[in-house]
Amino acid sequence: MSIEFRNVSYIYSKGTPIARQSLKDINLTINNGEWLVVMGPTGSGKSTLLQHLNGLLKPTAGTVLLDGSDINAAKSSLKSAREKVGLVFQYPEHQLFGSTVFEEVAYGPENFGFPKDEILGMVEASMNTVGLDFAKFKDRSPHELSGGEKRRVALAGVLASRPGIIALDEPTAGLDSAGKKHLVDTITRLNRESGITVIWVTHEITEIAPLADSLLVLEQGNTRGYGPLRDTLASPLLGELGLDLPVALQIANGLRKQGKQIQGCPVTIDEIEQEILSLVR
């Protein structure tokens, strides 16, 4: 599925003394199966942007198109956007309410009106996707699980309705490195095998730089950089805004400062290794 932002602006509390413009004239095109990374300092509008993807917020100006049609055009288009775009909020484990993992994960499909017999399969499939054994976890209370497991339950709850697009707000925040890797692997599999479109808001770019296609950099609601990931990373923009750079690129920049010749924009350890080997040779 594809999503397009056309001149989207958003003002919180419009028409009051505390009005605040949080998005300014944003233009984006996210194609089917694409993986977009969104970065920006705190308060730059990343979470506000995500809430436009399924109509939680309506643009003050401009339109959001899902597969070419305006999601805010009618109640039915809004409902279908809610189903097709899965939104994983920051710390999604704080929103768990079910008395069992099954009830929690089945909530979405039930609300979207899937038939009962189909829901069972959907829950089982999405629990498998996030690495929760169905038989072992389905009857446990989500509140007694570990932090990492809770987050997987929350992710399963969003994936259960089989969205074509998944948008995640700082999904790795507060996870240990094993938990991070597990999450990145899960989303990579969904993206590569099921062709799901991914929108990933983050402060940490190293793990996903080799996987993602494009990068959007926001600052105070403005687009500061947007395009293919490597092109955007190659510009000095992220450094100027004090944002995280992939480790490989940090090494490359360090070597360049010493006058060494490094080709292109290495983002994986393998790539920088090749560059260093060719320097030594």
């Binding site: 189903e83 909020f89 979405g108 609300n111």
Partner: peptide
Amino acid sequence: KIRKAQLSRGADFESWNPASRIKYVT
């Protein structure tokens, strides 16, 4: 935040069905 997370998973807070209303409130 919780309201928005529930809306994203298809909760319809304007529903007239009492059973679903109870479910959404919990």
